[in-house]
Amino acid sequence: MANQRPIRVLIAKPGLDGHDRGAKVVARALRDAGMEVIYTGIRQTPGMIAEAALQEDVQVVGLSILSGAHLELFPRVIEELKSRGVDDVLLFCGGIIPHEDIGTIETLGFKGVFGPGTTTTDIIEFVRAHAPVRA
């Protein structure tokens, strides 16, 4: 009905790497789980990602990165989000993320870190469980 708001999720790839198989699979899976996915795809700067999160008023931001630049780019995304006052979104990420980096990424505010072999079911459940409720 009219006032049942689906969860809105932003899926983006920061940086230059073009490997978007994972991002696409996740975007499609979340759509099939009834969510509205704002897909911005590849080559997004931290500023573009934060601005999209703001304008689209998403509850969730999922970032995919396979180039290894996560420790450089994720903090910049967080910074850009904060500078816009976007402080109430659920953050998760996926890609080639070395185990020893996970702690750092969690400290940044990411609630979920998903590596290769993750099922989309896990991600859907994660988003449903943690997405902030909006009036």
């Binding site: 759509r31 099939d32 795809g41 689209e56």
Partner: peptide, 27 residues
């Protein structure tokens, strides 16, 4: 599923960082 993939921002990449533009995708 009533879900949607909203991809219009991709086509308007260069506009999304212009403070004089506000783009909202809607399902």
């Amino acid at each position: 599923s009533h879900g949607a993939i909203l991809g219009d921002r991709i086509r308007m990449q260069d506009l999304t960082s212009d403070p004089g533009v506000f783009l909202r995708s809607m399902a």
